[in-house]
Simulated assay, not measured.
Amino acid sequence: MRTCLVVDDSRVIRKVARRILEDLGFDVAEAADGAEALAWCRTCMPDVVLLDWNMPVMNGLEFLRRLRKEPGGEAPKVVFCTVENEIPAIREALESGADEYIMKPFDSEIVASKFAEAGLA
């Protein structure tokens, strides 16, 4: 079964995302910030990362840049899931290695659609 690491400082968002992703057939792991997520990836690289941008300790963009430099870090699909909606921010995320971009709030249809666009369906 494929694994998705949900990285968000909001426990509520992680819980909602977990429910949606489990319904889509993913095993789900969680991290509350980028540093925790990077440590998790160094232990067991996930197939996909659902990533928030604004978090304490290490934000999503910094995590993404560091992930892509890790051994095997180019493999996971990374889908940003954030309130950041400015075109320059979206462009920066995609240029830094994100595969897709979801705006909060989100629902199961949006996640399923974006995961399909990223080749995860």
Rank of each mutant, 00 (worst) to 15 (best):
Met1Ser: 14
Arg2Tyr: 14
Arg2Trp: 10
Arg2Leu: 14
Thr3Asp: 05
Cys4Lys: 00
Cys4Val: 12
Cys4Trp: 01
Leu5Val: 10
Leu5Ala: 06
Val6Met: 08
Val7Pro: 00
Asp8Ala: 11
Asp8Thr: 10
Ser10Phe: 11
Arg11Met: 03
Arg11Tyr: 07
Val12Gln: 06
Ile13Glu: 10
Arg14Tyr: 03
Arg14Val: 01
Val16Phe: 08
Ala17Cys: 13
Arg18Trp: 05
Arg18Leu: 04
Arg18Tyr: 06
Arg19Leu: 14
Ile20Arg: 07
Ile20Thr: 03
Leu21Ser: 10
Leu21Arg: 04
Asp23Trp: 05
Leu24Ala: 09
Gly25Ser: 12
Gly25Tyr: 12
Phe26Tyr: 14
Asp27Pro: 00
Asp27Arg: 15
Val28Pro: 03
Ala29Val: 06
Ala29Gln: 12
Glu30Arg: 04
Ala31Gly: 08
Gly34Arg: 00
Gly34Lys: 00
Ala35Tyr: 02
Ala35Asp: 05
Glu36Pro: 01
Ala37Phe: 05
Ala37Arg: 01
Leu38Cys: 09
Ala39Leu: 09
Ala39Ile: 08
Ala39Glu: 11
Ala39Pro: 04
Arg42Thr: 05
Arg42Asp: 07
Thr43Tyr: 06
Cys44Gly: 12
Cys44Ile: 06
Cys44Val: 11
Met45Ile: 15
Met45His: 09
Pro46Cys: 11
Asp47Lys: 07
Asp47Trp: 03
Asp47Asn: 15
Val48Glu: 01
Leu50Trp: 01
Leu51Trp: 01
Asp52Ala: 07
Trp53Tyr: 14
Asn54Lys: 10
Met55Tyr: 04
Met55Trp: 06
Pro56Asn: 10
Val57Ile: 10
Val57Trp: 08
Val57Pro: 02
Met58His: 04
Gly60Arg: 01
Gly60Cys: 08
Leu61Ile: 13
Leu64Thr: 10
Arg65Cys: 07
Arg65Lys: 15
Leu67Glu: 01
Leu67Pro: 00
Leu67Tyr: 04
Arg68His: 10
Glu70Val: 11
Pro71Lys: 09
Pro71Glu: 15
Gly73Cys: 09
Ala75Lys: 15
Pro76Ile: 04
Lys77Trp: 09
Val78Gly: 03
Val78Phe: 09
Val78Arg: 02
Phe80Asn: 03
Cys81Ile: 06
Cys81Met: 15
Val83Met: 14
Glu84Cys: 08
Glu84Pro: 00
Glu86Pro: 01
Ile87Cys: 01
Pro88Ile: 15
Arg91Thr: 15
Arg91Lys: 15
Ala93Asn: 01
Ala93Gly: 12
Leu94Phe: 12
Leu94Ile: 12
Glu95Gly: 02
Glu95Ser: 10
Ser96Pro: 05
Gly97Pro: 00
Gly97Trp: 02
Ala98Pro: 03
Ala98Arg: 00
Ala98Cys: 08
Asp99Ile: 06
Asp99Cys: 10
Glu100Phe: 00
Glu100Gln: 08
Tyr101Pro: 02
Tyr101Ile: 07
Lys104Asp: 08
Pro105Lys: 03
Pro105Arg: 05
Pro105Gln: 02
Asp107Ser: 02
Ser108Val: 05
Ser108His: 07
Ser113Met: 15
Ser113Ile: 02
Lys114Met: 10
Ala116Pro: 11
Glu117Val: 07
Glu117Ile: 04
Glu117Cys: 13
Ala118Thr: 13
Leu120Lys: 00
Ala121Ile: 08
